[in-house]
Design a protein around this nucleic acid. Structure first.
Lengths: 339, 339
DNA sequence: ACACCGAGGTTATACGTAAAACGTCCAGTG
DNA sequence: CACTGGACGTTTTACGTATAACCTCGGTGT
């Protein structure tokens, strides 16, 4: 009988079942075949059940030297994107008996100041999403197995990386708009330093440079609808404005819609708009947004898969995750164009 | 010198500093005043720094019998609402040296099948958000300190509860619409069993019963924009339709916008629409949504505060968190009404 | 008759930490 | 000079688990 007020231990179960603590560990750890009789095993299970025994994970972790817990560092949870990453990672993790602890970096995309201070859990590994390479030195210092999501493969010395094929998505968007006759572009970019955004800028300008007669302007905004409204309003408030706005994500695109409305510019008749992510907001706004769909859950699954590979000493596969261009109502042929 | 490949332990630090392991524990635990000389303490700190020592949390947890980690059970992370709850809870937690582990119940609002199976962490307490009371029996069985968010105070036997003043918010919405001359209401309700939604229905119908000449219909939908479109389209596709739709949350309201557009019904001229939550989508859609703003982060902070109170043996304060009606462009006087 | 073996267990130990209990030395005191 | 007590540590122990190593006993082959 366990002392009142304390949770029962394996020793309490052993006493109740009339066996040794070791036998309890064997039975409950499913390692009893050929070591304990079926009858005894059942007695142990019964005792554990009636006492409401749950193993002390701290003790188990100490004994085994691993915790089956990993840390997922994300920039924020303000959109459902990283929630999806978490969901995917957690699903794969739980299939392998792992848990996932979340650390949303208060500084947002880029830095990640001491993620371990607040995550009290003991960790087996880390998945860092959209983080600046320099910010990871603190993490790297801990010798923990590390997987980086959407990060510069060059900058991530030694760490495994899993990336979305953002470049491919931007190329599809650009070609789509070029095909509709657009030549004058505005890139509404996120104003945070991150590889995932640099890729967008690089790919867009590279693709446009190949086509004569195109122009590209860039505006920057914080990643929020509110910020994008101001940035877009400033960038579109003149006569020979661009005919297409390529946004770094859907929130920015939603901001462009509002700016356009204020300026009396119609989407898509006067202005084509595209985003990246395919968040719920993309189909909530009118017209629905043409965007690059990122599969956040798959992203999380792959990230966790890569970490599991590292943990098991296997080589993580390193292919990019494909993305889809989803054409909706926010893009149309440029006016006067013969398409 | 620690064995290669292993993380250094306090014993390694002790060896490097030429002291006992106990001294290391005292110094690093900041309990050394009057027990260890300043010079020795500095030697220990220096050794810990150069070795890159980090205490083994599993061992600490085992020794102390607590983990400074709590579990936050949420229905989903598909909107930023519960992300906000998490953020608030995590902020307060980290101020008190606690970590928060997230468990998004795959079953959504209502049930929560075995949240401990996937959360590998050892826990000091649990915060359960918008869960059905029955679903908590599994949690209650664990004797863990428990705080319930937005749950029936009657059903939560013994557990502390922290609630938003949803009833007050719905009353404000209803009075606002009544003041605009609306008499015929549609309640677009979430189709999941949860106290937080029952409150909305109860309050709305109670308030309308007090006013002669009013009518109230109810439609149900899964909590998503897509689901709401179908439900709202069915409920609004007849001649003497309601003039106001009260939605259980903003996503449903966004769905109503789309349904209205398809039916050629204009918001707010032909139809006033309201939501609950004040998500980002509420200001992304046109017209901006009149809604009940819930402060998700404050909610999380209060929840964590209550749990800390329980953990420290204090009585958690039990007041409801006030909410605000935010009037925007989706509500207008009913046509032909003299307001 | 006896070594051998497998079934069915038990005993002992280590994981790394925190802290209670226990030394030891020396200055100060009556 | 014996004794006290503070400064500065050290020794030891316990937390609960998983598992390696060990034990016992009845049946078997030779």
């Amino acid at each position: 009988m366990p002392r009142a007020g304390t949770r029962p231990t394996s020793r309490d179960v052993a006493r109740a079942a009339g066996v040794s603590q070791a036998a309890v560990s064997l039975v409950l750890g499913d390692k009893w075949r050929g070591r304990v009789s079926e009858a005894t095993a059942e007695r142990v299970r019964e005792a554990a059940r009636t006492l409401g025994y749950r193993p002390n994970l701290a003790a188990r972790n100490l004994r085994l030297g691993r915790t089956r817990t990993v840390l997922l560092v994300v920039p924020a949870l303000t959109t459902e994107f990283f929630a999806g990453v978490y969901t995917g990672a957690a699903r794969v993790a739980s299939q392998h008996g792992f848990g996932v602890v979340l650390y949303p970096s208060p500084e947002g995309i880029g830095p990640a100041r001491d993620p371990f201070a607040s995550a009290q859990a003991a960790l087996d590994g880390v998945i860092a999403s959209s983080m600046a390479a320099e910010a990871l030195t603190a993490i790297r210092g801990d010798q923990l197995p590390l997987v980086m999501l959407d990060s510069d493969p060059e900058g991530s010395v030694g760490a495994a990386t899993v990336n979305l094929d953002i470049a491919g998505g931007v190329r599809q968007v650009t070609d789509h708009l070029l095909g509709l006759g657009h030549r004058h572009f505005l890139h509404l970019a996120a104003d945070v330093p991150s590889w995932t955004f640099e890729v967008r800028a690089r790919e867009l300008s590279a693709r446009l440079r190949e086509v004569p007669g195109t122009s590209l302007r860039t505006a920057r905004s914080a990643i929020s609808i509110k910020g994008a409204v101001a940035a877009a309003e400033a960038a579109l408030a003149f006569r020979d404005r661009p005919t297409a706005v390529v946004c770094d994500d859907d929130q920015l695109a939603a901001g462009v819609y509002k700016a356009a409305r204020r300026l009396g510019v119609r989407v898509p008749d006067d202005l084509s708009v595209t985003g990246v992510d395919d968040l719920a907001v993309a189909t909530a706004i009118d017209p629905e947004l043409t965007t690059v769909r990122l599969d956040a859950e798959l992203f999380g699954e792959r990230g966790m898969g890569a970490l599991l590979a590292v943990l098991e000493g296997r080589a993580p596969l390193a292919d990019d995750i494909p993305v889809d261009l989803v054409v909706r109502g926010s893009t149309a042929p440029v006016r006067g164009a013969s398409v």
